[in-house]
Amino acid sequence: MGKRERLVHIVDEVQELEAVRDAGGDLTMVLVLDGFLDAGSAAARAAQHLTDLSDGPVVATFDVDQFHDYRARRPSMTFVRDHYAAYDAPRLLVRLLHDAGGTPYLMLQGPEPDNRWEAFCGAVREVVETLGVTRVIGIGSVPMAVPHTRPIALTPHANDPALLTGTSPWRGELRIPSSAQALLEIRLGEWGHEAMGFVAHVPHYLAQMDYPLAAAVLLEQVEIAGRLTIDLSGLRAEAEDTEAEIATYLTANQEVADVVAALERQYDAFERAEEDGASLLAPDQPLPTGEEIGRQFEQFLAGLDGPEEPGPSDQERG
């Protein structure tokens, strides 16, 4: 227990949470770890939307120095003329938020730990058990060979089949890169705690830009699984604006539109065939390469996602 205490500091008395626990109520904790599962910045944008709606107090803080590789992901600093003026320290913390109806819930957000994943899982377990969390919901997104003109698909997952709110598009077994977020779901299940999540499938040619539609889709699932009510009107309006910009660009660039049309045919053929979910390609229809699509969309992404004023590059942000 001593080691865990050094890894996370939990606020001793949060009366509102104690009242929920004493009444035997549910307490959801949304999990968003930056750095891996976030194509289109969908999870980050979803987390920002939640804090914009209800920026509550911090109730737990992790010792980031124990988890962060500063040379691999260097935090930003501000240099003014002849001195260093500010340092944007990475923060891994839990906030107390409220939904549209006033229901309290938590959000654990920050950079995915670069090391000591098992220790991190143990620290999160302490947060869950101390604050009375009844369900953890992780969100993320991955780039997929899908067109933006079709509904965003989701991969639901959970450490208890009874928690699943949808059907997985995959069949059989897949070998995938691991993440601290995924490992946490496994460990929480071993410790008797409910954990689940959703991964949005973002068109891979849009994975480097902000894609608010995917963020809205993820939060719709958080509403259902967490029994919360979240005002998504602003996020949906932002998504509509982005979709309109994409449509305008495709109208003016026939070559790019042809590539998207090819993806649509492949996607529709796959849906009709209902074949093995391990591939999103229809038989005998080769997918345009990522390089081909990337070249066509380079100008598009620069125009849509470029900063209005000088700022860190995409690589620096990633």
Rank of each mutant, 00 (worst) to 15 (best):
A239M: 00
I224E: 05
S233Y: 02
A225G: 04
R265I: 02
T251E: 15
L188I: 10
A215R: 14
S233F: 01
E190K: 07
G192C: 08
I224L: 07
I246M: 08
V202T: 13
Y249D: 00
Q254K: 11
T229D: 10
R187P: 01
E245D: 06
E194L: 07
A200S: 06
A215I: 15
M196D: 09
V222Q: 02
L213Q: 07
Q221K: 11
E194N: 10
E240T: 04
R187M: 11
E245C: 04
V217T: 12
G192F: 10
L219N: 04
Y211M: 01
W191S: 09
A195N: 12
D241S: 13
H193E: 11
G189I: 04
A237D: 14
L219I: 08
E238C: 02
S233L: 13
E220V: 11
D268N: 06
I186G: 05
T229H: 11
A182C: 01
N253A: 09
Q221I: 00
M196N: 13
I224W: 02
V222E: 01
A215D: 13
F198C: 14
V260H: 02
L263E: 10
L250I: 00
A225H: 02
V199M: 14
Y205N: 12
F198L: 14
L232Q: 07
H201M: 09
R265A: 08
R236L: 08
A237M: 07
R265Y: 01
G197M: 14
T229Y: 02
R187D: 10
E190F: 00
A269S: 08
S233Q: 13
A269D: 05
T248C: 04
T251W: 01
L235P: 07
A215Q: 15
A247N: 10
R236W: 12
G197C: 14
H193T: 09
L250T: 00
G226R: 12
D241C: 09
E223Y: 05
F270Q: 13
L219K: 05
A262Y: 09
E194Y: 05
M209R: 08
L263I: 03
A239H: 02
E255T: 15
R265D: 06
R227L: 06
Y205H: 15
E255S: 14
I246W: 05
H204R: 15
G189Y: 00
E240F: 05
Y211L: 01
Q266H: 02
D268M: 04
T242E: 14
F198K: 12
A225W: 01
T229P: 00
A214T: 15
L206H: 12
L263M: 14
L263G: 05
H204P: 06
V217P: 03
E243S: 12
L228Q: 07
L235F: 10
E238H: 04
G234C: 08
P212D: 03
R227S: 10
L235N: 11
Y249P: 00
P212I: 09
E190D: 08
T229Q: 13
Y205Q: 13
V222I: 08
